[in-house]
Design a protein around this nucleic acid. Sequence first.
DNA 1: CTCCTTCCCTAACAAGTGTTTGGTAGGTTA
DNA 2: TAACCTACCAAACACTTGTTAGGGAAGGAG
Lengths: 195, 195
Amino acid sequence: MSASPERREELLATAAEVFAAQGYNATTVRKIADAAGMLAGSLYYHFDSKESMLDEILSTFLDELWARYDAVLEAGLGPRETIEALVTESFREIDQHRAAVAIYQKESRHLQTQPRFAYLADSQARFEKAWLGTLERGVATEVFRADLDIRLTYRFVRDTVWVAASWYRPGGQHSAEEIARQYLSMVLEGIALRE
Amino acid sequence: MSASPERREELLATAAEVFAAQGYNATTVRKIADAAGMLAGSLYYHFDSKESMLDEILSTFLDELWARYDAVLEAGLGPRETIEALVTESFREIDQHRAAVAIYQKESRHLQTQPRFAYLADSQARFEKAWLGTLERGVATEVFRADLDIRLTYRFVRDTVWVAASWYRPGGQHSAEEIARQYLSMVLEGIALRE
DNA sequence: CTCCTTCCCTAACAAGTGTTTGGTAGGTTA
DNA sequence: TAACCTACCAAACACTTGTTAGGGAAGGAG
């Protein structure tokens, strides 16, 4: 009936790895069970469906992400410092929840249509509001360029950060903070040499 | 036995739309047939498997992409002009083969492992060689910044371009060339206001 | 020892999967 | 008219899918 929370988390972690590597639909419960060293049916002692595993992975990821984002947004920083902090927190999140982020990237678009995953659309809306608002504030205070389509800029900044989840591996030669620093340097200053 | 090439292309186009919207594994042959206004079995008059549809979509896409890239790379342009031309051609490709690009983005990573799709890995290697080489040339000739990790820069430029396929819709308010121009401006000059 | 809980296995289920086989309406060719 | 080809349908196939039901080993509690 009831299962220990530690075992749940273990199984969710391995499930997330398989989901991230193979894609949710391509992942069978038997593959997850294999990776966990048990049989398919045994998973249903801990979870009541494959979909609820995905749900739990994504919702706990988003909960933690927003805890970090809210802390940044409520700190009263300037536009540029806010962007820097949001990007840095994003890379930290990628560092610690790489699999969940990769799943979110791949699956959230078509999951949003299902009622069960409506919170993905809500989160995306808050996401857009936070980033777009900060960018607009930066344009108004002459911190960011005014000659760019701001919506395009938003997508640009957002995507450059989160696609990193598709290639980033923790324990590589760059730390999350170092990658954030270089990304910010590219996004803010550009890659062309100034004379 | 044999089918007309025009009908094949029609069916491949609708199949690509469904693959891009739902993901390859989540797309059943019955859904493709539905979208094409026929029954599942009828698809096998034109194609010998679902996988060969995917194969044909991706390989024809890559063939056309490389025809464009090779033309740019053989033009003898400077590093900055080469990057600009590659980015512009990429956005034109996204404009004209949005579905194929979206599929490539989503599925190529785990398809590469299958022998049938080994050409995806080959293409990615050529891809990296072309972009990395141009960036290195730019650093050597003092056109691009030398203080950045060049491999990180490569992933940055590559990703910022191709993720656009996930939200770009042809016929929007910006043309492919206009988006390319703004993207290049952000990547090269940065989004921060210079004083 | 006995009871109970935790955690997993064995074995099956119904539904959905990609694919095949045989047939057939309609047009083209001879 | 007769033979033929194109493009599809109808119905089934073997297999995989997520999920369920009953059982049992291990270990702690009384």
